[in-house]
């Protein structure tokens, strides 16, 4: 336990430093993008046919403030805000705190991504085991080929295909938005049913897109373990099939847990295409929106959230690994 606690402390310290570094870099990158939201909005109003002075006036009324501090002052404010979990206000959301806007969007991303990833992980590893055990038979071939094919198709192509087929050609599922506006939000059957119905296509896309990778990774992992001496040894000692199977499964799944934890971190940022396709108001869509609108605070917040989720996923993966693999766990005990 002491080892794990010490390890956790080290990770957290490194994580905080890393987050600060990324926050700094993304702050300056975002600020060096040409154009600013005020100018962009004025420009938009002028394009819509408003007179330049009127457009400027309208913009000032809309935002209610004008940035005055130098870049370094802004940076100082930003970091000071970070320390109190204040990411500033989103200019495109009528001055709502960025954390609130992100939190609102996050719930539309986290649940479908989590569901899709876990579903594909479960299905993928189970079929991957079959693909490995039956690798010289037809079933194994079918599974391996399906895995390779799906693994090769980009997520957005899959999303478009599913949307085209199930929402347009045979319109049996909704493919636009997270929920039907007919229903009163709340804990009632209609609303929840509509939520679930709208989640089917995005979740299916996440699942199918990730499934191939899991099947292939699990297959190769199982094949490697099957060739390990201790499996033959267990069989020659007359171990029950179920026990030998557990030995194989536990050893084979080990490296996949790391990939799982890391992919959960990555998927928060990878939801951009899918949310665009299904018009899901999650973090991906929010990120696109904040970039087109030059919403600095929101952009920085979104980048930061993605960074933090990846760093946290890394820490979790490492800690989790030391729980499930005794070789990692005792690495420090021996030298202590």
């Amino acid at each position: 336990m002491v080892v794990i606690a010490r390890r956790l402390a080290g990770h957290l310290a490194r994580g905080v430093v890393m987050i600060l570094v990324v926050a700094t870099i993304s702050f300056f990158i975002v600020r060096s993008i040409p154009g600013d939201p005020i100018a962009a909005h004025t420009q938009k109003l002028i394009e819509q046919g408003m007179a330049p002075e009127a457009a400027e006036q309208a913009t000032r009324v809309l935002y209610g403030f004008q940035a005055t501090g130098s870049l370094w002052e802004q940076y100082g404010d930003y970091v000071a805000g970070l320390l109190t979990f204040d990411l500033g206000q989103s200019v495109t959301h009528a001055g709502a705190p960025v954390t609130e806007v992100l939190g609102e969007a996050a719930k539309w991303t986290v649940l479908p991504v989590l569901a899709g990833t876990l579903l594909s992980f479960l299905v993928g590893i189970i079929l991957g085991v079959y693909a490995a055990v039956k690798r010289s038979g037809k079933l194994g071939d079918v599974l391996a080929v399906s895995g390779s094919l799906l693994h090769g198709v980009p997520q957005y192509v899959l999303g478009l295909l599913l949307s085209a087929i199930f929402a347009t050609l045979i319109p049996i599922l909704p493919g636009d938005g997270p929920v039907d506006i007919l229903y009163e939000p709340g804990f009632n059957a209609g609303y929840i049913g509509s939520l679930a119905e709208h989640a089917v296509l995005p979740v299916a896309t996440y699942t199918l897109a990730a499934y191939g990778g899991w099947v292939l990774a699990m297959k190769s992992s199982v094949v490697t373990v099957l060739g390990d001496d201790f499996i033959l040894a267990a069989e020659l000692r007359g171990m029950k099939r179920s026990i030998v199977f557990r030995y194989i499964a536990r050893n084979a799944i080990l490296p996949l847990f790391t990939i799982l934890a890391l992919s959960l971190g990555l998927l928060l940022g990878g939801a951009v295409f899918i949310e665009r396709i299904f018009n899901y108001p999650g973090l991906g869509l929010l990120l696109i929106e904040s970039i087109t609108m030059r919403d600095y605070a929101l952009m920085g917040g979104a980048f930061l959230l993605i960074t933090v989720s990846i760093i946290v996923a890394n820490i979790l993966a490492d800690l989790f690994y030391s729980v499930i693999d005794p070789r990692v766990r005792s690495g420090e005990e021996v030298s202590a």
Binding site: D229, F230, A234, R237, R250, N251, I324, D325, P326, R327
Partner: peptide, 15 residues
């Protein structure tokens, strides 16, 4: 059956 010593005849994850 006793395996060659260099072969890992034990499950690395279990005592």
């Amino acid at each position: 059956y006793v395996f060659q010593a260099a072969q890992n005849s034990l499950n690395p994850l279990k005592t």
